[in-house]
Design a protein around this nucleic acid. Structure first.
Length: 423
RNA sequence: GGUGAGGUGGCUGAGUGGUCGAAAGCACAUCUUUGCUAAAGAUGCGUAGCCUUAACAGCUACCGAGGGUUCGAAUCCCUCCCUCACCGCCA
C-alpha cells in the first residue's frame, strides 16, 4: 500500500511512476485524493463534535454532583450525539473506501527498475553455464518420469484433477532430497532461519502480502473457516511479523521455508503447458527478508545470489533477467527472475522470482521497526524462491538424462538423495 | 465440542458508570546528587488519526475484536476471537 501522504503531496510524481506499469492507475490516484479530502473533512468535523460532547458530559457529571437539574443540557448533548453518529458513518465509509482504493493501487516501480511495457523488454542481467550438449535427442521429463516410474499424472487426475501429480518411487525421493538440499544450503551456508508455517492462513495475511483483495480468484478458499490455502510461503512467513514493531537489532530477518503452494491458476488452465510446468500444487522453498530501507537493495542482490547458488551447485545452466516496469509484480518495486534451462523443453523455465517490495507490504500489514532514535519506521520486505521445486525437478532430470534412459544425480545432491543415479 | 476462569500500556498489576489514556511497581531514557564496580532523587517514557507549526502544543480514538445501552463506558448488555484449567474427542 502506498503512503497516502506521498500521494497527497506528490500526486503527479506518483502517477508518473505508476504509468510505467501496464494498466491505468492515474484515475485511481485521483479517486483516492478526492476521497481523502472527504474523509479528512468528515473526520475533523466528527472530532470537533466529540470534543464538545466530552466537555459537556463532564459538566453534566459535575452539575449532577451538585444536585442541579441537567435535563436541558442532556437534550443538547443528545443532539450532538446523533450528529456524531451521522458524520461518523460518513467518515468511516470514506475511510474504508480510501483503504480499498489504496489496496488496489500497485507499488511504485523503483527508480532502478528498467522501463518497458512487456516481458520482451526484460533485460538479461547475466548467464551462468551453457546449454548442455547431447549426443542424442533429449527427452521430455514427462517421458523420463513415466519410464522411470517417478511421475504419475493419471493418478493425480484420478484422485484430484488435472494439473495435479503423484510423485512416486525415485521421483518422490528426488523431490524430498531437493527440499532438504535447499533448506540445508540456505540455513547452514546463507544464514536463514528455517520456518515451517501453517498452510492455511487468514485473509488478513493475504491482504498483507498483496494477494487480496485483487487476486482472490487465484487462491483456494474454505468459506466455512474463512481460511485460504497459501499460494506461496511468502504469505505466512512475511506475516509472522504483521502488526509488530520489530527492534532494530533483529534486522535483517532472514527466513527460509519449505511449503507446498496452491494456486487455482484461474484463467490459465490448459495454457499449453505439459507435465510439471504449471501445477495447482507444487513444492517451493521460499526465502524471505525483512530489512531496513537503507539495505534492502543490497539484500535483494544477496537474496538473488542465494537462489542462484542452488543452480550453480546442481550444475544447471540458467540466466537472470530483470523485470521491466510493465512486467513487474503488483507489490514489487524491483524483481529479478531466474530461469533455468530445461533441455527436454528446449526452453528456459522460471524457477525463482526475487523481489524487493520496499515498504509496500510492510505498510499493508502494519509492520514497523524502531530505528536508532527510537522512532517507528517501516521496514522493507523481500522474498524470492530458493527455488521452486517442480521446475527444478524438470530441469534436473532433463539435464542429467543419459543415452540409456537413466538419470545421473549431481554430486552436490547425492548425500541427500542417497545414490548416484536413477534407473 | 462442553464447563469454569481470564484477556488493561514493553512486563507485572490496580481500577465495576463521570475531570481514567488509565494508580502502583518493574524495565527503559535523560538529568541531578553522592560516590565507586553501585545507590538515591527528579523528569520523561504507548499507538494511530485530525488540525496546525519553524518547533512546541492542541484535539480525537484506542483498556482482546465488533455491536448495543447512556448525556457520558476500561467499567453495564450481546456476539465473536484468544489464553489457561478440567472433561470429551483425536494423529
Amino acid at each position: 500500500m502506498l503512503d497516502i501522504r506521498l500521494i497527497r503531496d506528490n500526486p503527479d510524481q506518483v502517477k508518473q511512476r505508476l504509468a510505467g506499469r501496464s494498466g491505468d492507475f492515474a484515475s485511481l490516484v485521483d479517486e483516492v485524493l478526492a476521497i481523502d479530502a472527504q474523509r479528512r473533512a468528515a473526520e475533523t468535523e466528527r472530532q470537533k463534535l466529540q470534543s464538545d460532547r466530552n466537555r459537556i458530559s463532564k459538566e453534566i457529571g459535575i452539575a449532577k454532583k451538585n444536585g442541579q437539574d441537567t435535563s436541558a443540557i442532556e437534550a443538547e448533548v443528545r443532539g450532538i450525539g446523533s450528529r456524531i453518529d451521522e458524520i461518523g458513518r460518513e467518515a468511516d465509509a470514506s475511510d474504508a473506501k480510501q483503504r480499498d482504493l489504496l489496496l488496489s493501487i500497485p507499488n511504485l516501480p523503483h527508480e532502478a527498475c528498467p522501463v518497458g511495457s512487456t516481458a520482451e523488454e526484460n533485460p538479461e542481467v547475466r548467464v551462468w553455464g551453457a546449454k548442455p550438449e547431447f549426443a542424442f535427442q533429449p527427452k521430455d521429463h514427462t517421458v523420463l518420469g513415466a519410464a522411470l516410474g517417478m511421475l504419475d499424472f493419471e493418478a493425480g487426475v484420478k484422485i484430484t484433477g488435472s494439473a495435479f501429480v503423484v510423485y512416486r518411487g525415485a521421483g518422490a525421493r528426488l523431490e524430498r532430497a531437493l527440499i532438504s538440499f535447499l533448506l540445508d544450503l540456505h540455513t547452514t551456508q546463507h544464514g536463514y532461519e528455517e520456518i515451517s508455517p501453517p498452510l492455511l492462513v487468514k485473509p488478513e495475511c493475504l491482504e498483507g502480502t498483496g494477494q487480496l483483495p485483487k487476486f482472490g480468484d487465484q487462491v483456494y478458499h474454505s468459506p466455512e473457516d474463512n481460511l485460504y490455502l497459501i499460494p506461496t510461503a511468502e504469505v505466512p512467513v512475511t506475516n509472522l511479523h504483521r502488526d509488530e514493531i520489530v527492534p532494530l537489532e533483529k534486522l535483517p530477518i532472514n527466513y527460509a521455508a519449505y511449503t507446498p503452494c496452491f494456486r487455482r491458476e484461474a484463467g490459465s488452465a490448459g495454457l499449453g503447458t505439459r507435465g510439471l510446468i504449471r501445477m495447482h500444487q507444487f513444492d517451493k522453498v521460499e526465502l524471505v527478508k525483512i530489512t531496513t530501507p537503507e539495505t534492502s537493495m543490497a539484500e535483494l542482490e544477496s537474496l538473488t545470489g542465494n537462489a542462484e547458488k542452488v543452480l550453480q551447485l546442481l550444475g544447471l545452466h540458467y540466466r537472470v533477467i530483470e523485470l521491466c516496469t510493465g512486467d513487474i509484480g503488483f507489490g514489487s518495486a524491483k524483481t529479478y527472475d531466474i530461469e533455468v534451462w530445461a533441455p527436454g523443453q528446449g526452453t528456459y523455465l522460471e524457477v525463482s522470482s526475487c523481489s524487493n517490495f520496499g515498504d509496500y507490504q510492510a505498510r499493508r500489514m502494519n509492520l514497523r521497526y524502531k530505528d536508532e532514535n527510537g522512532k517507528n519506521r517501516i521496514p522493507h520486505t523481500l522474498n524470492g524462491s530458493g527455488t521452486a521445486l517442480a521446475r527444478l525437478f524438470v530441469a534436473l532430470v532433463e539435464t542429467y538424462q543419459q543415452a540409456d534412459g537413466t538419470i545421473v544425480i549431481p554430486e552436490a545432491l547425492r548425500g541427500h538423495f542417497g545414490s548416484e543415479k536413477i534407473g
